[in-house]
């Protein structure tokens, strides 16, 4: 297993390199630059700004400069949109809020999703299944940009239990985490139910049952392990997405997280910030997919590290 992980970590280097390179050139080919604004500026001013940010150099030179700074100094450059901030600073500043929101949402998603999914599978085609399944379906049918405002209107404005938005006290964490968590809970519940149903029919479960193993042992020891495979595959990218923040949620609830930077940096043509966020996300995705692969072997002894 250690060899497997070591090899994967080595593979990360070319993968990251390709991602950074592709992104670097992609953002440059998008029309509009960081200094385009509604009121036209003179060519001289633009030239000065570009010179200050090193955007006047030939593209290949900008690219090597960027790579050098990132690899040697871990310096992700200056943001062009937030003039006095560096990308490192912005990420360090915004990531904690996204991690908090993401962590809580993930907790909600896993607890709700897994229990609803397992219940639905075990009590298949009973009222419990229908209830759990329709909860999941409802979560899938209501997009976050509808659910978020509805929760705010009910719990913040009508009932007055929470603030309508903001990220100052612990109460402020509840509504956004719930909104984001429910969406993922729905997906997890559906996949868990599906995966469990597959496994509950397999021979080894029947064998276990025939041997007189207790139902709860069958469910948690055998069925859940096999049934979780699809959920785990789904969770890798999902967790990366949750932890790096959600544009919609952060906008609705006014959360100082990274999710908005992901989208807005692209809109602002803030090249360095786009690259910085992409690198962060790439590292997360790669790490999580690696963890997923390890967990899957653990869940299913039939798999081997290869």
């Amino acid at each position: 297993m250690l060899r497997f992980i070591a090899r994967r970590l080595l593979e990360t280097i070319p993968v990251l390199f390709i991602i950074v390179t592709a992104t670097f050139f992609m953002v440059r080919f998008v029309p509009g630059g960081p200094f385009d604004s509604e009121k036209a500026t003179t060519p001289e001013i633009r030239a000065n700004l570009e010179a200050y940010y090193g955007l006047n150099l030939p593209l290949h030179q900008q690219y090597t400069n960027y790579l050098k700074a990132v690899v040697l100094d871990g310096d992700l450059g200056r943001s062009t949109k937030y003039a006095s901030r560096t990308v490192n600073e912005i990420i360090a500043d915004k990531l904690p809020a996204s991690l908090q929101l993401g962590g809580l949402s993930l907790l909600i998603a896993l607890v709700l999703g897994l229990s609803a999914g397992v219940l639905a599978a075990v009590k298949r085609n009973t009222k419990i299944d229908y209830l759990a399944s329709s909860f999941a379906m409802t979560g899938i049918c209501i997009p976050t940009f509808v659910l978020g405002p509805i929760l705010v209107l009910v719990f913040a404005i009508h009932l007055g239990w929470f603030s309508a938005s903001g990220w100052y006290s612990w109460q402020d964490r509840i509504l956004p985490s719930l909104t984001l968590g429910i969406v993922y809970a729905a997906g997890i519940a559906r996949l868990t139910r599906g995966g469990m149903l597959e496994v509950l029919n397999l021979d080894y479960i029947r064998t276990a049952r025939a041997k007189g193993a207790s139902e709860s042992r069958i469910i948690f020891k055998h069925a859940l392990r096999g049934g979780l495979l699809p959920v785990v595959s789904y969770l890798g990218p999902a967790i990366a997405g949750i932890l790096t923040g959600s544009f919609v949620i952060e906008t609705i609830f006014q959360i100082p997280g990274l999710g908005r930077e992901f989208v807005n940096s692209a809109f602002n043509r803030d090249y360095t910030l786009v690259l910085g966020t992409v690198i962060l996300y790439a590292v997360l995705i790669i790490a999580l997919n690696l963890i997923v692969d390890v967990v899957q072997v653990w869940l299913n002894p039939k798999l081997k590290f290869e």
């Binding site: 390709i18 592709a22 990218p237 790439a282 997919n289």
Partner: peptide, 26 residues
């Protein structure tokens, strides 16, 4: 082959979608 194919998936996950879409359109 599996390893290469899955690393390609990792790369595609990480590329910035908004930028990709704007480029496609342009």
């Amino acid at each position: 082959i599996d390893r290469v194919m899955m690393r390609i998936v990792d790369i595609l996950y990480a590329l910035p979608f908004t930028i990709f879409v704007i480029l496609l359109m342009v």
